[in-house]
Structures are given as C-alpha cells and as structure tokens.
Design a protein around this nucleic acid. Structure first.
Lengths: 137, 137
DNA sequence: GTACATGCAAAGCCTTTGCAGCGCC
DNA sequence: GGCGCTGCAAAGGCTTTGCATGTAC
C-alpha cells in the first residue's frame, strides 16, 4: 500500500489526508488479523510515538462511517476492524479466540439467493454474514 | 414455568437450586427479548429487593456453562442471553438496536447441508448462525 | 459439615467524550 | 481562514473479582 493509494482511498471516502490516518489505514488494510484498536495502536506507535489511542479509536470509527473499513464485535465484546470489504464470513475459535476469514463463493451465492426468494416481512436486509463457531483441529 | 420445572432443569445442569436461580431462570426463559443482565435484574428486583446485579451476572454465566441458556454479543458489545437453545438466527436492527429471532427451517437445512458437504479444513464446526443486519420497514 | 452461592463494593477493561491546540484544504 | 483532526486526560458503561456471610445438600 503506497502513500498515494491510501490518499486516494481516503479521498474517495471524503476524508482529509493526515499522517495518522495514513498509518492507521495502512495497519488495518495490511492484515487479515481482524485487529482491535489496541493492536493497531501497538503496531504504529513505535514509528509514531506521539499518536494517541483515542485518535486510533476515533479514526477507525471515521473509516467505518466513510465505508472504507468494516467493524464487528467479537465473542468477548471487543470491537474488531477489517479492511476487507467484500462479503465474507468468520470462523471463531472457541478455545483460542482466534478469528479467521472464511470465504466461499458458493455459500455466499446460496445465501444471497435464499434471501432474494424469501423476503423477511417488515425487515429490509442490508447485510448478511455467517458466524461459524468451533475450534481448530 | 413452574418451580418444579425449573428445579428439574437446574438439576439436569448439575446446579443447586436456589431462589435467585429460580427467578433468574424464569425471567430469561419467559422472554424472546434476548435480555441483557441489566434487563433481567430490573425484571426481578421489585419482587426480590436484596438480589444483586453481580449475582445476576454470575448466575447467568453459570447457566451458560451448564448449557441451559445461550449467550451472545450484540452489535454494541453487550452480552445477551437467550433461553431458547434450538438453532436460530437473529435480525439486528441497525437503527433501533432491537434484536429479533429469525427462524426458518429451510435456511437452517440449507446451511446444515452446505457444511456437511463442505468441510472446513483444520476446523471443527460446533455452531453456525446467520447474522442479518438491516432495519425495520 | 462442607462446598458452593450470594451480596456488596471495588476494580478492570474497553471505549467514548470534552476541550484546547494544530494542520489540511 | 475555517473547519475539522489530534492528543490528552477524564469519565462512562458493562462486566468481573474478592471476600465475608449465608445456604443447599
């Protein structure tokens, strides 16, 4: 991820470009770890000692509102962020609390088709995801 | 839910019977509201003024560990409890934060069949649920 | 009698808020 | 120049913990 690419992504989201936003976006988008705010902060603070955890929280929320990252809540109630915008599901390991991506086109198509055919009365669906809990073997 | 029924359910879970456990189980199992600990506490405290919120938290966790209720986390990171043990999915209203049950046998069968045919390498699935986000219309 | 449950208060963790100062456009 | 971003510290909400007392079995 180059500076210019990040600048463009922020710009598309209608956001000003700042150094903090660049490094925060860089940290979130370069990982498949579903990072917490704390993790992002730890990653960037050695190179940016004056950055504050509060700013990381605010900035991540700003990104979510701008639609350039996603946010969800893990089994422990901690906010997780995700730079991957395409539909995908998550595997939650009950033992280690690790979260892995699970992407399967067939499953996504299956679910999409199901809800296209089966409208839910009184409810407008915006987003569907599958939560798979279990453990590594 | 009679006292005797509750006593039997607790006993099956290997739990001692106490008055607090009875009223807490009663409050969780009689609703489809996906209650928070706070909600349960509010429901029961008028009839049980000496009960403490800490006990409600501990007791609910005890029930989850005994397998007689379920626990999940809502979009805000707040713990929700559910006396319904059968597989079912949830509708999350992004505007009101209301959570409704969504039960559809066909969807449950579809997903069950999918994962029976498509094992996930290195992962043992224990539980699958569909998270549907959107808003009431 | 013993092991476990309860009540209370304090602490913990994650997250948000308020505000003064600074920086991008 | 103006609006909005940042840093800092304090407060907030939800949940867990520690411990003395009480209770089911």
């Amino acid at each position: 991820m180059t500076t210019e690419q990040t600048r463009e992504i922020l710009s598309k989201g209608g956001l000003k470009f700042t150094h903090q936003r660049m490094v925060i976006y860089g940290a979130v988008s370069c990982t498949h770890n579903h990072p917490t705010a704390e993790w992002v902060y730890e990653q960037i603070k050695s190179d940016n000692p004056s950055i504050s955890l509060g700013t990381v929280y605010k900035t991540l929320d700003t990104f979510v509102n701008a639609g350039i990252i996603q946010k969800f809540v893990d089994n422990k109630g901690v906010m997780r962020f995700d730079g991957i915008l395409e539909a995908h599901s998550h595997l939650y390991d009950n033992e280690t609390n690790e979260i892995r991506d699970y992407r399967n086109e067939k499953l996504e198509r299956l679910i999409k088709e199901f809800f296209a055919e089966n409208q839910i009365s009184g409810f407008e669906v915006e987003d569907i995801s599958v939560v798979i809990k279990g453990h590594n073997k």
